[in-house]
Design a binder for these strands. Structure first.
Lengths: 94, 94
DNA sequence: TAGAGATTTAGAATATTATCTAAATATCTA
DNA sequence: TAGATATTTAGATAATATTCTAAATCTCTA
């Protein structure tokens, strides 16, 4: 989950997640939304993928990226754990 | 909220929040939980404070740190927004 | 199968972050 | 008020992160 928190620390990556929330997009479509080079966006997408926050699937020439919500739910669980007094047995990497 | 996400990206700072979840602690008490120098912990506490995730209050010689949950709730709100399809009008920097 | 389009990989420059030691500041108490 | 305790500030160093351009890879189609 450390990778997820690190991935979420960058505003560009959070914006990518917001875009993918509405619909899946190809890497190029994502890149078109930013004033950042395609290789940089590709790097951000890879970080999100490593963190388990997005899935990628090749469709012909394009690679489609979509939101993967499982880890998002894990992060929410961690945040709720911080809020509540109960449930001290929450797992976390150091 | 960008500051909060950045603050949460560091595992030491997340562990500090977990410690403060159970009870408020002085800076020294927090530092005693880690193999990290006191100035470094002080730096982490300051980042958490700037992000609005903790509050500090001097009590005599000590400075007590406590969890401040408002921004945690904001982050949870952002995360839920990513999960759900509805509520596209969520505020976010960037 | 050659070329075009989409994406990633490689390598480098710059910026940010985490950490340390040493010194400064603030508070209490004898 | 002098010394002890608690914490922060300053300044430096090493590790990470973000971004770029150029080149490589993969896929489709004419």
């Amino acid at each position: 989950m450390n990778d997820a928190f690190k991935a979420l620390a960058d505003p560009t990556r959070r914006q990518i997640l917001r875009l993918l929330r509405d619909r899946s997009m190809s890497a190029g479509e994502v890149a078109d939304q930013f004033n950042i080079s395609k290789p940089s966006i590709s790097h951000h997408l890879n970080i999100l993928k490593q963190a388990g926050l997005v899935l990628d699937e090749r469709q012909g020439q394009s690679i489609m990226y979509s939101l993967h919500t499982t880890v998002v739910e894990d992060v929410i669980g961690w945040m709720f754990h911080i809020l509540g007094k109960e449930g001290k047995e929450h797992d976390d990497e150091q």
